[in-house]
Nucleic acid binder design. Structure first.
Lengths: 184, 184
DNA sequence: CCGTCATGGAACAGATGTGTTCCACTACGA
DNA sequence: TCGTAGTGGAACACATCTGTTCCATGACGG
């Protein structure tokens, strides 16, 4: 049951990708719009995802995978907690419209459930090694990470003249400053 | 034409208030839900706001007024730009669910149009007087302000044990750190 | 007591989205 | 050439939201 036809896989992926892009802009968008964006008939979409909830679940699953992949690329075990968090931030920034989806979709309930614990551990490592202000609770730090990521993504979308690299630089600077512990 | 009946004013205000609360949680919520939340018949709601768009416009107007009022309370002319921005942040924080609405409603297009310029001036004052890192563009700083406000509001909503004052303290600390210029 | 003011409920038509069924078309391999 | 897999279009019933109309009720002042 593992490998379906290559065509089916590609169609399914096209639908999920289109769904992520459109739902990021408008969480209430219609299935017809998604099908059109995926260049697929609405009938075909329903063949892959019987109900809207099925598609949303697939989107959540895909989003979760991308987050896990990004976290893996960030190599969270290396260096101080603060450094690891900044690397993670850079990887997350590449996720693009998925970032908007996290905010629109009730702050992301599902895909973070187990990943959350892992990230909390990184922040607490930062608390211990002095790279993150211990006065900032771990979940506050993570909320900060997400909100600044979203702000950066929006900023990039509105100011087309700003280069991706420049925005990432601003993001890194403000986030690392925000987390920096007081000079003791 | 200025003063309608006191009853009408109160009913209208109740509808707008309910709309702000519900739309903040779900921008696609139905007029029936809003009417129910305002403890008003759907007929009455339609009597005050012929179309959904009319209600949304009233919500935007009310939101704009609240923002302007908050900005006035912050006394933006006083002190350094950085200090003024932190005072503004504290005032905005009291706006509650309106914060969520700003993000859900496409990042707030209308009510900021003229206010935006005023806030940009405050940030630039901060650039000049050395209280805000000049490497951070003004609109980046404002985007940061909004995103952290949203994060703080969400944090307060999820962790009911955290006191309003404590969250405001976290917000102030991280925001002022993020904007602080490098030690030169 | 009577009129009006503000309201709520019921019912309706129209629009939109959803989920389903049925049929036709194309590509591809046996 | 034939059968199958994957697809798209048309049509349908169903649900929800919207905007409107009509009528009944309670409050309040003259």
């Amino acid at each position: 049951m593992a490998v379906t036809s290559g065509v089916k896989n590609r169609t399914r992926q096209a639908i999920v990708d289109a769904a992520i892009d459109l739902l990021a802009g408008n969480p209430a968008c219609s299935l017809g719009d998604i099908a059109a964006a995926a260049q697929v008939g609405r009938t075909t979409l329903h063949r892959y995802f019987g109900e809207r909830a099925d598609l949303l679940a697939a989107v959540a699953a895909e989003g979760g995978e991308r987050l896990v992949r990004a976290a893996a690329l960030a190599d969270l075990e290396r260096g101080t907690g603060g450094e690891a968090l900044l690397r993670l931030c850079r990887e997350y920034f590449d996720l693009g419209s998925l970032l908007s989806l996290m905010f629109a979709g009730a702050g992301g309930e599902c895909w973070e459930s187990q990943d959350e614990q892992c990230l909390v551990a990184v922040v607490e490592r930062g608390h211990a090694d002095g790279s993150i202000d211990p006065a900032l609770p771990a979940d506050w730090v993570l909320g900060l990470l997400w909100s600044q990521l979203y702000a950066a993504w929006e900023y990039l979308g509105q100011r087309r003249d700003a280069s991706r690299h420049h925005v990432l630089d601003l993001l890194t600077r403000t986030l690392s400053n925000a987390l920096r512990p007081p000079p003791a």
